[in-house]
Write a protein that binds this DNA or RNA. Structure first.
Lengths: 112, 112
DNA sequence: CTCTCATATCGACAAATGTCAATGTGAAGT
DNA sequence: ACTTCACATTGACATTTGTCGATATGAGAG
Protein backbone atom coordinates (compact mmCIF):
# COMPACT_ATOMS: atom_id res chain seq x y z
CA UNK A 1 0.00 0.00 0.00
CA UNK A 2 2.31 2.57 1.34
CA UNK A 3 4.96 0.92 -0.68
CA UNK A 4 3.09 1.68 -3.86
CA UNK A 5 3.04 5.39 -3.09
CA UNK A 6 6.77 5.37 -2.50
CA UNK A 7 7.35 3.54 -5.75
CA UNK A 8 5.17 6.02 -7.60
CA UNK A 9 7.05 8.92 -6.12
CA UNK A 10 10.28 7.37 -7.40
CA UNK A 11 9.10 7.75 -10.98
CA UNK A 12 8.71 11.49 -10.68
CA UNK A 13 12.04 12.00 -9.01
CA UNK A 14 13.44 11.58 -12.49
CA UNK A 15 12.02 15.00 -13.29
CA UNK A 16 12.97 16.73 -10.05
CA UNK A 17 16.53 17.70 -10.76
CA UNK A 18 17.86 20.34 -13.06
CA UNK A 19 20.62 18.15 -14.46
CA UNK A 20 18.27 15.27 -15.14
CA UNK A 21 15.95 17.55 -17.07
CA UNK A 22 18.95 18.72 -19.04
CA UNK A 23 19.84 15.11 -19.79
CA UNK A 24 16.32 14.35 -20.94
CA UNK A 25 16.46 17.37 -23.17
CA UNK A 26 19.64 16.05 -24.78
CA UNK A 27 18.09 12.62 -25.22
CA UNK A 28 15.11 14.09 -27.00
CA UNK A 29 17.18 14.36 -30.15
CA UNK A 30 18.02 10.67 -29.99
CA UNK A 31 20.18 8.12 -28.26
CA UNK A 32 23.39 9.44 -26.72
CA UNK A 33 26.53 7.89 -25.36
CA UNK A 34 27.27 8.64 -21.70
CA UNK A 35 30.52 10.30 -22.69
CA UNK A 36 28.66 12.69 -24.98
CA UNK A 37 26.30 13.62 -22.19
CA UNK A 38 29.25 14.15 -19.91
CA UNK A 39 30.81 16.65 -22.30
CA UNK A 40 27.80 18.91 -22.20
CA UNK A 41 26.88 18.87 -18.56
CA UNK A 42 29.51 20.47 -16.33
CA UNK A 43 29.18 17.69 -13.77
CA UNK A 44 31.59 14.95 -12.81
CA UNK A 45 31.50 11.47 -14.29
CA UNK A 46 30.35 9.80 -11.09
CA UNK A 47 27.57 12.32 -10.75
CA UNK A 48 26.36 11.62 -14.27
CA UNK A 49 26.37 7.93 -13.50
CA UNK A 50 24.27 8.62 -10.43
CA UNK A 51 21.69 10.61 -12.42
CA UNK A 52 21.52 8.00 -15.17
CA UNK A 53 20.81 5.37 -12.58
CA UNK A 54 17.86 7.33 -11.28
CA UNK A 55 16.55 7.97 -14.79
CA UNK A 56 16.84 4.31 -15.71
CA UNK A 57 15.22 3.17 -12.48
CA UNK A 58 12.28 5.45 -13.14
CA UNK A 59 11.78 3.65 -16.46
CA UNK A 60 11.88 6.85 -18.48
CA UNK A 61 15.34 6.14 -19.87
CA UNK A 62 16.77 2.86 -21.14
CA UNK A 63 20.44 1.95 -21.39
CA UNK A 64 22.07 0.01 -24.20
CA UNK A 65 25.50 -1.47 -23.78
CA UNK A 66 27.89 -1.71 -26.66
CA UNK A 67 31.44 -2.63 -25.94
CA UNK A 68 32.76 -0.29 -23.36
CA UNK A 69 30.17 2.36 -24.07
CA UNK A 70 26.71 2.81 -22.71
CA UNK A 71 24.09 4.55 -24.78
CA UNK A 72 20.97 6.02 -23.26
CA UNK A 73 17.66 6.90 -24.81
CA UNK A 74 14.19 7.94 -23.76
CA UNK A 75 11.83 5.01 -23.43
CA UNK A 76 8.58 6.00 -25.05
CA UNK A 77 6.97 3.19 -23.15
CA UNK A 78 8.38 4.42 -19.85
CA UNK A 79 7.36 7.97 -20.65
CA UNK A 80 3.85 6.78 -21.37
CA UNK A 81 3.77 4.91 -18.08
CA UNK A 82 4.71 8.11 -16.27
CA UNK A 83 1.97 9.98 -18.07
CA UNK A 84 -0.56 7.32 -17.22
CA UNK A 85 0.51 7.46 -13.61
CA UNK A 86 0.20 11.22 -13.56
CA UNK A 87 -3.30 10.90 -14.95
CA UNK A 88 -4.17 8.39 -12.31
CA UNK A 89 -2.86 10.59 -9.53
CA UNK A 90 -4.66 13.74 -10.58
CA UNK A 91 -7.95 12.56 -11.97
CA UNK A 92 -10.88 13.94 -10.04
CA UNK A 93 -13.41 11.26 -9.47
CA UNK A 94 -16.95 12.09 -10.55
CA UNK A 95 -19.76 12.46 -8.05
CA UNK A 96 -18.10 14.35 -5.24
CA UNK A 97 -17.47 17.43 -7.35
CA UNK A 98 -17.52 21.12 -6.61
CA UNK A 99 -17.60 22.23 -3.00
CA UNK A 100 -16.63 20.07 -0.12
CA UNK A 101 -18.78 17.28 1.19
CA UNK A 102 -22.53 17.45 0.97
CA UNK A 103 -24.31 20.19 -0.88
CA UNK A 104 -26.56 21.60 1.84
CA UNK A 105 -25.47 24.60 3.90
CA UNK A 106 -23.81 23.91 7.17
CA UNK A 107 -23.21 26.02 10.25
CA UNK A 108 -20.27 28.31 10.63
CA UNK A 109 -18.83 26.20 13.39
CA UNK A 110 -17.93 23.20 11.33
CA UNK A 111 -15.97 22.66 8.18
CA UNK A 112 -17.90 19.58 7.16
CA UNK B 1 17.12 29.15 -19.28
CA UNK B 2 18.53 27.21 -16.46
CA UNK B 3 15.90 28.86 -14.39
CA UNK B 4 13.23 27.29 -16.51
CA UNK B 5 14.54 23.81 -15.80
CA UNK B 6 14.49 24.50 -12.10
CA UNK B 7 10.96 25.82 -12.30
CA UNK B 8 9.89 22.74 -14.23
CA UNK B 9 11.44 20.46 -11.67
CA UNK B 10 9.41 22.23 -8.99
CA UNK B 11 6.18 21.06 -10.57
CA UNK B 12 7.11 17.41 -10.23
CA UNK B 13 8.26 17.73 -6.67
CA UNK B 14 4.58 17.71 -5.85
CA UNK B 15 4.55 14.03 -6.74
CA UNK B 16 7.82 13.06 -5.07
CA UNK B 17 6.67 12.54 -1.52
CA UNK B 18 4.61 9.74 -0.11
CA UNK B 19 2.47 12.02 2.01
CA UNK B 20 1.74 14.36 -0.86
CA UNK B 21 0.61 11.46 -3.00
CA UNK B 22 -1.63 10.40 -0.15
CA UNK B 23 -3.06 13.91 0.00
CA UNK B 24 -3.72 13.93 -3.75
CA UNK B 25 -5.46 10.62 -3.39
CA UNK B 26 -7.74 12.08 -0.76
CA UNK B 27 -8.46 15.11 -2.92
CA UNK B 28 -9.47 12.94 -5.84
CA UNK B 29 -12.84 12.41 -4.21
CA UNK B 30 -13.39 16.16 -4.02
CA UNK B 31 -12.45 19.27 -2.11
CA UNK B 32 -11.27 18.71 1.46
CA UNK B 33 -10.71 20.93 4.45
CA UNK B 34 -7.17 20.92 5.83
CA UNK B 35 -8.45 19.61 9.14
CA UNK B 36 -9.99 16.63 7.40
CA UNK B 37 -6.72 15.87 5.66
CA UNK B 38 -4.93 16.18 8.95
CA UNK B 39 -7.13 13.56 10.56
CA UNK B 40 -6.17 10.93 8.03
CA UNK B 41 -2.48 11.49 7.64
CA UNK B 42 -0.53 10.70 10.81
CA UNK B 43 1.60 13.81 10.36
CA UNK B 44 1.73 17.00 12.39
CA UNK B 45 -0.23 20.11 11.51
CA UNK B 46 2.82 22.12 10.53
CA UNK B 47 4.00 19.33 8.31
CA UNK B 48 0.68 19.23 6.52
CA UNK B 49 0.87 22.96 6.01
CA UNK B 50 4.32 22.53 4.52
CA UNK B 51 3.11 19.89 2.07
CA UNK B 52 0.07 21.90 1.06
CA UNK B 53 2.30 24.82 0.29
CA UNK B 54 4.36 22.71 -2.09
CA UNK B 55 1.27 21.27 -3.74
CA UNK B 56 -0.24 24.72 -4.23
CA UNK B 57 2.99 26.16 -5.55
CA UNK B 58 3.19 23.39 -8.12
CA UNK B 59 -0.22 24.47 -9.39
CA UNK B 60 -1.73 21.03 -9.03
CA UNK B 61 -3.76 21.96 -5.98
CA UNK B 62 -5.75 25.13 -5.33
CA UNK B 63 -6.76 26.52 -1.95
CA UNK B 64 -10.06 28.15 -1.08
CA UNK B 65 -10.45 30.18 2.08
CA UNK B 66 -13.71 30.26 3.94
CA UNK B 67 -13.73 31.82 7.36
CA UNK B 68 -11.10 30.14 9.41
CA UNK B 69 -10.98 27.09 7.23
CA UNK B 70 -8.97 26.37 4.12
CA UNK B 71 -10.27 23.93 1.58
CA UNK B 72 -8.04 22.31 -0.99
CA UNK B 73 -8.85 20.69 -4.28
CA UNK B 74 -7.08 19.37 -7.34
CA UNK B 75 -6.81 21.92 -10.10
CA UNK B 76 -7.70 20.19 -13.33
CA UNK B 77 -6.01 23.03 -15.12
CA UNK B 78 -2.85 22.62 -13.05
CA UNK B 79 -2.91 18.87 -13.55
CA UNK B 80 -3.21 19.37 -17.27
CA UNK B 81 -0.27 21.77 -17.22
CA UNK B 82 1.82 19.11 -15.50
CA UNK B 83 0.80 16.55 -18.10
CA UNK B 84 1.66 18.94 -20.91
CA UNK B 85 5.01 19.59 -19.34
CA UNK B 86 5.68 15.88 -18.97
CA UNK B 87 4.87 15.43 -22.63
CA UNK B 88 7.22 18.20 -23.55
CA UNK B 89 10.04 16.73 -21.50
CA UNK B 90 9.79 13.20 -22.83
CA UNK B 91 8.80 13.62 -26.45
CA UNK B 92 11.38 12.16 -28.79
CA UNK B 93 11.97 14.49 -31.66
CA UNK B 94 11.66 12.96 -35.10
CA UNK B 95 14.64 12.66 -37.44
CA UNK B 96 17.38 11.59 -35.07
CA UNK B 97 15.69 8.34 -34.21
CA UNK B 98 17.01 4.86 -33.55
CA UNK B 99 20.65 4.41 -32.85
CA UNK B 100 22.97 7.16 -31.82
CA UNK B 101 24.28 9.79 -34.16
CA UNK B 102 24.76 9.14 -37.83
CA UNK B 103 23.70 5.95 -39.47
CA UNK B 104 26.95 4.72 -40.99
CA UNK B 105 29.08 2.22 -39.13
CA UNK B 106 31.95 3.58 -37.10
CA UNK B 107 35.07 2.00 -35.72
CA UNK B 108 35.22 0.27 -32.39
CA UNK B 109 37.38 2.97 -30.92
CA UNK B 110 34.80 5.73 -30.93
CA UNK B 111 31.31 6.04 -29.58
CA UNK B 112 30.22 8.58 -32.18
C1' DC C 1 48.64 -10.36 -19.92
C1' DT C 2 48.88 -5.70 -19.20
C1' DC C 3 47.37 -1.20 -20.10
C1' DT C 4 43.99 2.08 -21.08
C1' DC C 5 39.47 3.75 -21.51
C1' DA C 6 34.36 4.09 -20.17
C1' DT C 7 31.44 3.51 -16.64
C1' DA C 8 29.91 2.05 -11.94
C1' DT C 9 30.45 2.08 -7.06
C1' DC C 10 32.14 3.83 -2.60
C1' DG C 11 33.06 7.19 1.06
C1' DA C 12 32.78 11.75 2.53
C1' DC C 13 30.60 15.98 2.72
C1' DA C 14 27.36 19.95 1.79
C1' DA C 15 22.80 21.31 0.55
C1' DA C 16 17.99 20.39 0.32
C1' DT C 17 13.98 18.23 2.34
C1' DG C 18 10.67 16.32 5.81
C1' DT C 19 9.48 16.43 10.45
C1' DC C 20 8.12 18.23 14.92
C1' DA C 21 7.30 21.59 18.81
C1' DA C 22 6.64 26.25 19.65
C1' DT C 23 4.96 30.52 18.29
C1' DG C 24 2.47 33.90 15.23
C1' DT C 25 -1.84 35.35 12.89
C1' DG C 26 -6.40 36.06 11.59
C1' DA C 27 -11.34 34.74 12.10
C1' DA C 28 -15.29 33.47 14.98
C1' DG C 29 -17.57 32.72 19.26
C1' DT C 30 -18.29 34.25 24.19
C1' DA D 1 -11.88 42.47 24.80
C1' DC D 2 -10.78 37.87 25.57
C1' DT D 3 -10.64 33.25 24.20
C1' DT D 4 -10.59 29.61 21.05
C1' DC D 5 -9.95 27.53 16.77
C1' DA D 6 -7.63 26.75 12.14
C1' DC D 7 -3.77 27.38 9.79
C1' DA D 8 0.93 29.48 8.72
C1' DT D 9 5.60 30.40 10.02
C1' DT D 10 9.87 29.68 12.54
C1' DG D 11 13.77 27.15 14.42
C1' DA D 12 15.94 22.88 15.34
C1' DC D 13 17.08 18.49 13.90
C1' DA D 14 17.40 14.00 11.23
C1' DT D 15 17.13 12.05 6.70
C1' DT D 16 17.71 12.24 1.90
C1' DT D 17 19.88 13.93 -2.11
C1' DG D 18 23.53 15.84 -5.16
C1' DT D 19 28.28 16.29 -5.63
C1' DC D 20 33.09 15.12 -5.88
C1' DG D 21 37.47 12.36 -5.62
C1' DA D 22 39.14 7.83 -5.31
C1' DT D 23 38.71 3.25 -6.37
C1' DA D 24 36.64 -0.94 -8.66
C1' DT D 25 34.98 -3.34 -12.76
C1' DG D 26 34.76 -4.76 -17.38
C1' DA D 27 35.86 -4.33 -22.27
C1' DG D 28 38.92 -3.58 -25.94
C1' DA D 29 43.79 -2.44 -27.68
C1' DG D 30 48.69 -3.35 -27.57
Amino acid sequence: MNNKLIKNSQVFKAFCDENRLQILKLLQSGEKCACVLLEKLSIGQSTLSHHMKILVQSGVVVPRNEGKWTYYSISEQGAQAAKDLLDKLTIVKPGKSGKSGKSGKQGKSTCK
